[in-house]
Design a protein around this nucleic acid. Structure first.
Lengths: 208, 208
DNA sequence: AAAGTAAATGAACACTGTTTAGTAAAAGCA
DNA sequence: TGCTTTTACTAAACAGTGTTCATTTACTTT
């Protein structure tokens, strides 16, 4: 049936259309401040139409998940393979931080917001994307261990430790909890990077 | 003027009354899900009245700041002084994590939300409370350094590193970003604590 | 008691996410 | 072709939100 096929295509096109408009607005003025009516206006449809393609606002958010993780995974994969594992780990950390600051709204969506997590019972399937990104870290930690770093720990535990630290650093900075102790914007940034270096040195000095 | 004095007192009482109701509701069902009308109902006044005492909803939130930090500072101060610095650091970390899980709404307010930061240009004065809590960590790190731990780093940098890690761990857990990799709730909790222990061991093994 | 002041109200404003009854166009079938 | 059914969409409504403001109520001062 050619008609059914076309309808299927059109439905998919509409979904993409909505998601593109939603993404543009979300990244432009934030999730909270973007209303369904804003999105409807952007695509020149009535608000109700959006609910024919997506369950609710959270599902809209959730559908940007994949794209967001692809972006991060791309960044984290793009590391010089010639580098030693421990140097690559440093670069990966910097890339992660860079991504977080260049895509604050996406980062929020991926690692901070509760809404998209509620949207689906995303136990295994859907967080494949997050898993893929985490695997990049895990793989690198594994290589580091073969070089004698973090050798006594389980890969997963060491990886989570690293992730937690960088995530904590990034969120404290972006949520303005470092500015308090600092005189200027640059000051809080250098302080953040100094702390990042302390963390790295701490890993390096523990070589077995 | 006795009358003016009484009026002043009554105004203050009203403020406290509103804040107490707000606190109860915020902690009970969350900041977002608590409306001004909810608070007004609780104190049996009209919604408009609240705006005679507070600029907006954010200011209401901001006024819980002091109390929240006092709570954390109290917890973090309550550590056996007989303990060695490095053991005390471990306990402090556990206390921090405990506080975060027992007071999720307060933790959010203190370290995650953007709203209260916008409410006031709280550069110095208001974050004194946050500073006081951070100082407890800094003091402990200083003592650890005298024992040879983290010896080569600046106190501030090492302290921020520790804070970032624990904060990251806590937020990843509370925002359900660990459940993805885990089979059960307990699993994600033990995993969190395993990562915490890795971090500690990493500090301990770096003794000079 | 009358005038003036301060406090509290409740309706209104401009929004929000979401649901639903009704409509117009397209598709399937005779 | 005409007729029915299906699909896509809309406009309006619902129940809420934070916030403002003219109006009323209560109290204080003259």
């Amino acid at each position: 049936m050619g008609v059914a096929d076309r309808k299927e295509r059109e439905k998919e096109e509409m979904k993409v259309k909505i998601l593109e408009a939603a993404k543009k607005l979300f990244l432009g003025k934030g999730f909270e401040k973007t209303s369904i009516r804003n999105i409807a206006d952007a695509i020149e449809y009535s608000p109700g139409t959006i609910y024919l393609y997506f369950k609710d606002k959270n599902e809209l958010l959730f559908n940007l998940h994949v794209e967001a993780f692809n972006g991060l995974t791309r960044e984290l994969s793009n590391i010089d393979p010639e580098l030693s594992p421990i140097d690559a780990l440093e670069v990966m950390g910097e890339q992660y931080i860079k991504f977080a600051f260049e895509n604050p709204e996406l980062y929020e969506l991926m690692f901070v917001m509760e809404a998209p997590m509620e949207s689906l019972e995303c136990k295994e399937e859907v967080w494949d994307d997050g898993m893929k990104a985490f695997d990049l870290l895990r793989f690198l930690v594994d290589r580091c261990q073969k070089d004698g770093y973090l050798a006594t720990y389980e890969v997963d535990d060491a990886s989570l430790m690293i992730w937690s630290f960088v995530h904590g650093l990034v969120t404290l900075k972006s949520r303005k909890r470092l500015d308090m102790f600092c005189d200027s914007e640059e000051d809080s940034l250098t302080r953040m990077m100094r702390s990042f270096n302390v963390f790295l040195k701490q890993i390096k000095c523990g070589k077995s």
